[in-house]
């Protein structure tokens, strides 16, 4: 630990020197340049191995989706054997009258509409918490943070009973309504508001005679496009990936999500003796596609979201 102390003192001294520009450091990392060649090779090897580990299951899944049943069971899993992707896709989309398409549409409906509503509510709440000082503000924020610790079962089971009492179980509402209230989104919205909406701007708008609602809709929401997109994206991913809530509140398969449908298919193998492995694998690959497109298209947003959300 003595070294750390020593270094800290030295660090304080060198800090007097004009700090190195951030952009400069991004282009050429001086740390990397000062490394020995052998050390660099070791570092690269480690990263390449880790990347291979990360990508290997996806690679295998893509290969598996192109095989027929014989190929799946008998050929080398790491390489192609025949090209049956189109047959597999056709099988997935026509199995049980195209129920897979129904599940896809449901997943989009729950994740899309639920996240959109949830994001609007979260932005309003985050704005209210960040830029107004009203009695009870601390209590609201405490609820937001405290709810991170509530286990999903503690909420979902009584929700199921409450929903069934009002006849909402097994309807899309049972998925959509819980998505509207997302404490983590509120937390993010508050952080983004604090970072992007200056008090002075609000004061100026008020002096110009703008009402609070008008300020929110025509100034705050517009300035929060980036933050709002991040909140939406993370909520979308969250809902798309949800499993316990849909498993609990959705009974009939016409309302299921993709996750629930794939779970059901993977269980069929045992119960009825029919082999649906290639169905499950092709379906799994398809269910990644929308997520991948969304992640790549919006990577600017989720990168900031993941880190900002975590470094509370």
């Amino acid at each position: 630990m003595a070294l750390t102390e020593n270094v800290k003192e030295n660090g304080a001294e060198t800090a007097a020197v004009p700090p190195r520009g951030r952009t400069v450091r991004r282009l050429t990392n001086p740390d990397a340049a000062s490394r020995s060649k052998g050390g660099q090779r070791f570092v690269l090897l480690g990263l390449i191995l880790a990347s291979a580990y990360s990508l290997f299951p996806v690679y295998w899944l893509m290969i598996a989706a192109t095989k027929d049943r014989v190929g799946l069971y008998q050929s080398n899993g790491l390489w192609f054997s025949g090209w049956h992707l189109w047959d597999n896709l056709q099988q997935v989309f026509t199995y049980e009258d195209g129920i897979f398409l129904r599940w896809t549409a449901n997943s989009f409906l729950y994740a899309g509409v639920g996240s959109l509503g949830g994001t609007l509510i979260a932005l309003a709440t985050g704005y209210g918490l960040a830029r107004f000082d009203f009695p009870g503000r601390g209590a609201v924020f405490a609820c937001v943070v405290g709810s991170f610790l509530i286990p999903i079962a503690l909420l979902t089971l009584p929700l199921y009973l409450l929903f069934s009492a009002i006849g909402m179980v097994d309807t899309p509402w049972a998925m959509l309504i819980p998505c509207l209230i997302n404490p983590f989104s509120v937390y993010l919205a508050k952080v983004y508001t604090e970072a992007t909406i200056p008090f002075e701007l609000l004061e100026a708008a008020r002096l110009d005679g703008a009402g609070e609602l008008r300020i929110f809709f025509s100034i705050v929401l517009r300035m929060m496009t980036t933050g709002g997109a991040t909140v939406f994206l993370l909520a979308f991913v969250n809902t798309w990936n949800a499993f316990f809530l849909p498993l609990t509140v959705l009974r009939g398969e016409e309302n299921w999500t993709l996750n629930l449908g794939l779970y059901n298919w993977s269980g069929k193998r045992l119960e009825s003796g029919i082999d649906v492995t290639s169905l499950v694998l092709t379906g799994a690959l398809l269910s990644i596609v929308p997520m991948a497109i969304m992640m790549v298209a919006m990577r600017r947003y989720w990168r900031t979201g993941v880190t900002l959300g975590a470094l509370k």
Binding site: I121, A122, A124, T125, Y127, G128, L129, R131, F132, D133, F134, P135, G136, R137, V140, I181, V186, E212, F216
Partner: peptide
Amino acid sequence: RWKGAAFTVPF
């Protein structure tokens, strides 16, 4: 202040 609080009412 109360208008600000109103933004958090839906939540």
